[in-house]
Design a protein around this nucleic acid. Structure first.
Lengths: 162, 162
DNA sequence: CGATCACTGGGCAGTATGTATAGGGTATTA
DNA sequence: TAATACCCTATACATACTGCCCAGTGATCG
């Protein structure tokens, strides 16, 4: 099997370059991509299909800037919860719109929660609502002051270009 | 000014429905959106332009599933760093490809870092590299076991549909 | 050697896009 | 109330892209 077209669960050079290209200019169509990459249109089409089949490329969701939408504050909470109640707690957190992300983790805390709010008063309300969820034992909250590195995948893609 | 078409920094009903639609089916074109929303094509075009101008809609980046790319492990680290060295530390973290996200926070820690790795040995290496960054005083690392709530914006958009 | 696979290059019908314009509805303002 | 501004509708046209199909080629695999 050619290492050029198959890298196990990974991606190959052309895949990576395609994803990088799309990362930089997401609105590009298949045809334009093929031109930039110097390959046939069908190839790009096949690669994109394959990346989607493999689950690497899951789509092109609209990137919404919550700050521009009025939710300028972000906070993180580490929740320590009652034994075996992770599912229940997660479900309740799910019902809070401002909760944007939850991870179950090892270590001191059990759940890491990311949430947003429109202003300080609003943040207070959201935090209260989160920490008062049933089965939440202890919490530790911090407010995000800035984001030195926003969510990024680029470096990992660049490394795959070899 | 009509509250129907302007909500300060926020978005109005049609904006929200458009974003929701695109969230669910990002590949939809302008024309298809207009059909689904029951408005004229030009309207959708104008709304999208406006949302981009306002910075609410920042683009349609390809969503890459790191797990499918081989980076199946995610970990979080809270870093406590030397006074006034946030910039320097951030810069060094920037050079580590596996570091996917960094926030400066209030509270016990100073920086919250999200990173990924391919396997346990790899994770060990990445964590070592992160915690050994200059000016990092103390660290607390946890591994993500699962993600009960993946990054989402939907609930906030749904609330804007009124 | 034959089979399989990926890429190329071409073609075709259908459809979307960018752009522009005219008209109607409605709200803010003088 | 009239003027102004804004948003939406509806329509048009030229251009461009998409999905789909196919034949040919070179490389790898058994």
């Amino acid at each position: 099997m050619s290492e050029t077209t198959e890298g196990g669960p990974g991606i190959d050079d052309l895949d990576a370059r395609l994803l990088l290209l799309l990362t930089d200019e997401p609105r590009l169509g298949v045809l334009e991509c093929s031109r930039r990459l110097g390959v046939a249109r069908g190839t790009v089409q096949a690669r994109m299909d394959r990346l989607e089949r493999r689950g690497v490329l899951t789509g092109f969701p609209p990137a919404v800037d919550l700050a521009a939408m009025g939710y300028g504050l972000t906070a993180f909470a580490v929740l320590e919860i009652a034994q075996g109640k992770r599912g229940e707690v997660a479900q309740r957190l799910h019902a809070i719109p401002e909760v944007c992300e939850v991870h179950a983790t090892t270590g001191e805390g059990d759940l890491l929660v990311r949430m947003v709010a429109q202003n300080n008063a609003d943040l207070q309300r959201v935090i209260d609502r989160v920490v008062n969820v049933e089965w939440v034992r202890r919490t530790s909250t911090s407010i995000a002051l800035s984001t030195p590195i926003p969510t990024r995948v680029r470096p990992l893609l660049e490394r795959a270009v070899r």
